[in-house]
Amino acid sequence: MESQKRTVKKNLAKGNKTQKTKRKKRPKKAIKSKKAIIEAKKRKKREERKIIFFELLGALAITSFLVFLLSVFLFSLPKIEGYSMVPTLREGDRVYVNKLGKLKTFELVYVQIPGKKAKEVRRIIGLPGQKITYKNDQLKIDGEDREEKFIFEEQQTSQENGRLYTDDFSIFSLTEKTEIPKGKYLLLGDNRPYSVDSRQYGLVDQKDIIGVVEMRILPLHLFQNF
């Protein structure tokens, strides 16, 4: 009987130990499973971030490429250098140039200066086939007086001081031709007394005119459509 009791006690003790061991192991498994879930979620988030990053990088690359293509074929955003276009444009202004714009009298154009690397903004005064003369600050196109509103105040001030704002000249005095040849344009700066333009470097080929200046975009407080 005593041996049986001892056996029963041993079995009970073993059972209790087994239960205690099981109870102790369960929390560890639960903790491990929770950690695994958390790690899996973290890995998933990292993967999602990587995907988003590469998607944004790809979108940025495509956008940059498209902007580059557009700037090559459709528009340009040059910065004004020098003072030839004062008072209309000043040094440091940034303008929007439409490379598909139509060339018309008094339009501002962005042009490759003949014989130089420089590209600058000037104003179209004469078109192919036109006869141009300046006399006593009066522009005549094909014999008709044309008003230059964009420099009216400067002309008035200059005349009050006994000076011409635009020195007398004609197409004949510049080219020894009676009219502007085909494919050529007469370009002047608005700052006539100091501008370097067709009076110095001659008429400009159409192929050297990059585009039409349609607006000043910077500085923002001077934003203006032309």
Results as ranks from 00 to 15, higher is better:
5 K>T: 10
10 K>I: 13
11 N>R: 15
12 L>Y: 12
14 K>V: 10
16 N>F: 12
18 T>N: 13
22 K>Q: 09
26 R>I: 15
29 K>V: 11
30 A>F: 09
31 I>M: 13
32 K>D: 10
32 K>V: 09
35 K>T: 14
36 A>D: 06
36 A>K: 09
38 I>T: 07
41 K>N: 08
44 K>V: 06
45 K>A: 11
45 K>W: 09
51 I>S: 14
58 G>V: 07
58 G>Q: 07
59 A>D: 05
61 A>G: 03
63 T>W: 01
65 F>A: 12
69 L>N: 08
75 F>V: 06
82 G>C: 10
88 T>R: 05
101 G>M: 05
102 K>D: 15
104 K>P: 00
107 E>N: 08
113 I>M: 14
115 G>T: 06
122 R>T: 08
127 L>C: 01
129 G>S: 03
130 Q>D: 06
133 T>A: 15
140 K>L: 14
144 E>C: 04
156 Q>I: 11
162 G>F: 05
166 T>D: 01
168 D>I: 15
172 F>M: 11
173 S>L: 13
178 T>Y: 11
181 P>E: 03
181 P>K: 05
184 K>L: 08
184 K>S: 04
184 K>R: 12
185 Y>W: 01
185 Y>T: 04
187 L>C: 03
192 R>A: 14
197 D>R: 07
200 Q>V: 15
202 G>Y: 01
204 V>N: 02
206 Q>E: 14
207 K>A: 07
208 D>T: 07
210 I>Y: 00
213 V>C: 03
214 E>S: 13
216 R>A: 10
223 F>W: 13
